[in-house]
Simulated scan of single mutants.
Amino acid sequence: MEGVESSSNNGPIASVEPIEQVFDDFELNILKAWMCTVSVNMSMHTREPIRDSKLSGPEWIREILFGHSDRIYETFRMERHVFLNLCDLMKARGWLADSRYIRVDEQVGIFLSMISHKNSNRDLCERFQHSGQTISKYFAKVLQAVLNLAREIIVPPSFDVVPEEILINPKYNPYFKGAIDGTHIHASSSSANDCRVLSAALETHRLQFPRPPPGKYYVVDFGYAATPGFLTPFKGERYHINDFRGRVRQATTARELFNHRHSSLRNVIERSFAVLKNRFFILRHMPSFSIQKQSCIVIACCAIHNYIRDQDKMDKNFSQYGDSEYPFGNAQDEVIDDTSTEEDIEINMLKKRIANQLAIDNNMAEIP
Rank of each mutant, 00 (worst) to 15 (best):
P12E: 13
I13Q: 09
I13V: 14
I13S: 08
E27N: 07
N29E: 15
A33M: 14
M35N: 09
E48P: 01
L65G: 04
F66C: 12
F66P: 03
H68T: 01
I72F: 06
T75N: 08
M78S: 05
D88E: 14
R93L: 05
V104K: 02
V104S: 06
V108Q: 05
S113E: 07
M114L: 14
R127F: 15
Q129S: 09
H130W: 08
V146E: 03
V146P: 00
I153K: 04
I154Q: 12
F159E: 04
E164V: 10
E164I: 10
F176E: 05
K177M: 11
K177C: 09
G182T: 07
H186R: 09
S190F: 04
D194W: 02
D194H: 13
C195V: 06
L202W: 01
G215N: 05
V220D: 06
T227G: 05
K235S: 10
I241G: 01
V248L: 11
R249C: 04
A254T: 05
V268K: 08
F273E: 06
P287T: 05
C296I: 01
I297F: 02
V298W: 03
V298P: 00
A303C: 02
D310A: 11
D310L: 14
M314A: 10
S324T: 13
D333C: 12
I336F: 09
S340R: 13
E342W: 12
I345F: 10
L350F: 02
K351C: 10
L358I: 14
